[in-house]
Computed example of a mutant assay.
Amino acid sequence: MTQRKITGVRKNAKDTITHALIEGNSRATSIKTLVGMADKELIADVNSVHSKKSASHIRANPDGKTKNNLANLPKI
């Protein structure tokens, strides 16, 4: 299956990403769903992080560029 890219993010009042827009979708996807998709390698340039101390989340794969970090993507 082809990997799709995250094109925008929605943050809460604490500046935490809660949802993201995936190319080809018209509605935002929750972080919980995105974590599962990242685990299955369905999202390009993203990996999931699982911790016993905090909620699972996604992170952009490191590439030395800050422009494409999830926190720097356009807000939706």
Rank of each mutant, 00 (worst) to 15 (best):
I6G: 01
I43T: 09
V35N: 00
K14S: 10
K67S: 14
H57N: 08
G36H: 06
D39C: 01
S26P: 03
N47P: 02
G64E: 00
N72M: 02
K14P: 04
T18D: 04
M1Y: 10
I58T: 01
S56R: 02
D15G: 06
H50E: 03
H19D: 10
S51M: 07
N61K: 14
E41R: 11
T2M: 15
M1I: 06
N47D: 12
S56E: 01
T33M: 05
V35S: 03
S26D: 13
G8M: 10
M37R: 10
I22M: 07
L21C: 10
K14H: 13
T66M: 12
D45A: 11
I6T: 03
M1T: 09
L70S: 06
V9Y: 02
N61D: 12
R59E: 11
N69D: 11
N72T: 01
L70T: 01
S54Q: 11
R59L: 13
I6Q: 02
G36K: 07
K11T: 00
R4S: 09
N12I: 14
I58V: 14
G24H: 06
K52W: 10
I31A: 01
I31E: 00
T16E: 15
A13M: 14
N12V: 14
A71I: 06
I17F: 01
N69V: 08
N68L: 10
A60D: 07
A55N: 11
K11C: 00
L73N: 02
A44M: 09
G24D: 13
K65Y: 09
I22E: 04
D45W: 04
K52L: 14
A71V: 05
R10N: 10
A13L: 15
A44G: 05
H19I: 05
K40Q: 09
A28L: 02
A71T: 04
T18P: 02
Q3Y: 07
A44R: 11
K5D: 13
V35H: 01
V49A: 05
N72D: 03
T18C: 09
S48I: 04
S26Q: 14
G8F: 09
V9L: 05
